[in-house]
Design a protein around this nucleic acid. Structure first.
Lengths: 197, 197
DNA sequence: AACATATGTTAGAATTTCTAACATCCTTTT
DNA sequence: AAAAGGATGTTAGAAATTCTAACATATGTT
């Protein structure tokens, strides 16, 4: 039986985790400081010791999500030889799987409240995630990661998996009565975007 | 000089238009009934004669946006022969252009508040928009619009333009220091997804 | 042990959503 | 043309929310 403590222990982490669950459960728009506070077991004013406002709490959730997504992409890519079509497909699959598994957080990661764009940490983490794909492409074509040809091809692949993620979490695919094999779809896209003619 | 009227004339339309502008200006999340009311020149309670709640006002803005987007796609496609690669490219270009020209409304159209999914009018309008593309594909391959092969190819093309739209409005493309020619990018995608080998 | 700092609470102002009760205008029926 | 009745708008206010200010309690440093 725990003693009721005045201090929480690690309230920043507690709030971030509570917020993550709420974002997932009810969507980013419906997260309130009140709900997060209650879930973390503190008063509604307590969060303001750690987060300037609601947006900053959401930012923390988004940042943590970006880290986990990058890890997922790396784990997916590592299953296949660096630069192989299979690796690119696996990275795409990991991307889409993350999006559908964590709809709320994924949507939050891409629902820019003017802050995001300038937020250096967010730019960095976004870049880190993209790099997982770029590393494979750079190796495949024996070019530096920042080569325009690599960036252009990387962007096309990202564009596809990103678009598919959104159409899936918005239920557009099922709404259009389309049944799809996710792996096939991604493998096909990888093949089409990796060929040189 | 206008007489100050008690009745607005067409408050539903006035509010929808005011809301559209505000959504564009400040983003969907920051639209408040108060702001829309003031912009339309009525009290804050007036909107509730026409919209059950804030979500319904946003829905109206989204629906109107979907209609305009479909019109834009049709206008783009009509510039080229039905079923041609150029028509598909032009439709994609119109899609992305709409998204970047009306970031706020576009984002709103795809930020599903559980209502969207079941909302029959929204399903219909979404389907109408997709059909602009499907008509071209069906003609190109001489198959019915609901043929699985047509749907699958249509989804891939949609996926690409949809993903590109989001990456652009979220400033991810510039954040990754990628410069891109929009038409080239879309023409390339159309070519890759329309080929049969 | 006392002070300083970190961390949490309570109280409350400002804003927002939405409802209820009331006011005004318009249309239709006689 | 007058009155009834419905449609459309207003004012007032309850409940919820964000965020701040002032206060309280714990922690750890000298």
């Amino acid at each position: 039986m725990k003693k009721a403590r005045y201090h929480h222990g690690d309230l920043r982490a507690g709030l971030t985790e509570a917020a993550r669950l709420l974002v997932e459960e009810r969507g980013p728009e419906r997260l309130t400081m009140s709900l997060a506070s209650r879930a973390a077991g503190v008063s509604t004013a307590a969060p303001y010791r750690y987060f300037a406002d609601r947006d900053e709490l959401l930012n923390a959730v988004a940042l943590e999500g970006m880290e986990r997504q990058r890890e997922a992409l790396e784990a997916g890519g590592a299953l296949h030889p660096l630069g192989s079509e299979a690796a690119v497909t696996a990275i795409g699959l990991a991307y889409v799987n993350f999006a559908t598994r964590e709809r709320g957080v994924f949507r939050l990661m891409f629902s820019l409240t003017r802050t995001h764009a300038q937020h250096p940490e967010m730019l960095q983490k976004g870049s880190d995630t993209f790099d997982v794909l770029l590393r494979n492409l750079a190796h495949r074509y024996a070019l530096p990661m920042d080569d325009p040809a690599i960036l252009a091809r990387g962007l096309k692949l990202w564009t596809f998996v990103h678009g598919l993620s959104f159409l899936l979490i918005d239920d557009k695919v099922s709404a259009m009565s389309i049944s799809l094999d996710l792996h096939d779809t991604l493998a096909d896209a990888a093949r089409r975007f990796l060929r040189d003619d």
